[in-house]
Amino acid sequence: MSSDIEICNVALSRVAVTKSIVSFTERSKEAEQCRVFYTSLRDLVLQAFPWPFAESIVALADLGSPVNGWAYRYRYPASCLKVRDIVQPGWRRALTSDQQIPFQIGYDAGGRVIHTDQPEASCRFTFRVEDSTFFDPQFADVLAWRMAMDLALPLSSKPELQQFAAQQYQMALTIAEGSAFEEGQDDPEPESEFVSVRS
Score class of each variant (00 low, 15 high):
Glu55Tyr: 11
Ile57Thr: 15
Ala78His: 06
Val142Thr: 07
Arg198Met: 07
Glu182Gln: 14
Trp145Met: 03
Arg146His: 10
Arg42Thr: 08
Pro52Ser: 10
Tyr38Asp: 05
Ala165Trp: 06
Pro52Lys: 10
Asp98Glu: 14
Gln170Gly: 04
Leu155Lys: 00
Ala78Lys: 13
Thr126Lys: 06
Arg84Trp: 11
Ile175Arg: 09
Leu81Phe: 12
Gln47Ile: 02
Gln47Asn: 01
Val22Ser: 13
Pro66Thr: 11
Phe127Ser: 08
Ile114Thr: 03
Pro137Ala: 14
Glu32Met: 09
Arg27Ala: 06
Leu81Tyr: 11
Pro50Phe: 02
Ser196Ala: 04
Gln118His: 05
Glu32His: 10
Pro190Leu: 11
Ser56Arg: 15
Gly90Asn: 04
Thr39His: 10
Ile114Leu: 03
Glu193Leu: 08
Leu12Phe: 12
Ala180Val: 05
Ala121Ser: 11
Pro77Trp: 01
Ala71Met: 10
Asp150Ser: 11
Ala109Lys: 12
Lys29Glu: 14
Glu6Ala: 14
Pro190Asn: 04
Asp85Phe: 15
Arg124Ser: 13
Leu63Cys: 12
Ile21Arg: 03
Asp4Met: 08
Pro188Gly: 01
Tyr38Arg: 04
Arg35Ser: 07
Gln47Gly: 03
Val67Arg: 15
Cys34Tyr: 01
Trp145Cys: 04
Glu191Asn: 05
Ser97Gln: 13
Gly110Gln: 12
Val113Ser: 07
Glu177Arg: 15
Pro89Asp: 01
Asp131Trp: 00
Thr174Arg: 10
Ser156Glu: 02
Phe194Lys: 00
Arg112Thr: 15
Ser179Gly: 07
Val10Gly: 00
Ala152Asp: 02
Ala152Tyr: 05
Gln185Glu: 14
Ile105Glu: 07
Val142Asn: 01
Arg14Ala: 00
Trp70Asn: 12
Ala54Pro: 08
Val87Arg: 04
Gln170Cys: 07
Leu155Trp: 01
Arg128Pro: 00
Asp4Tyr: 05
Asp186Ala: 14
Phe37Pro: 03
Ser199Asn: 02
Leu63His: 12
Leu95Arg: 07
Asp108Gly: 06
Glu193Asn: 03
Pro190Phe: 13
Pro137Ile: 01
Ala172Gly: 07
Leu153Cys: 04
Ala166Arg: 14
Phe24Met: 15
Phe49Gly: 01
Thr116Met: 09
Asp62Met: 12
Gly110Asp: 15
Gln33Met: 13
Thr25Ile: 07
Phe164Asp: 10
Asn68Ile: 08
Phe103Ala: 01
Asp98Val: 13
Arg42Asp: 04
Ser20His: 11
Ala172Ser: 10
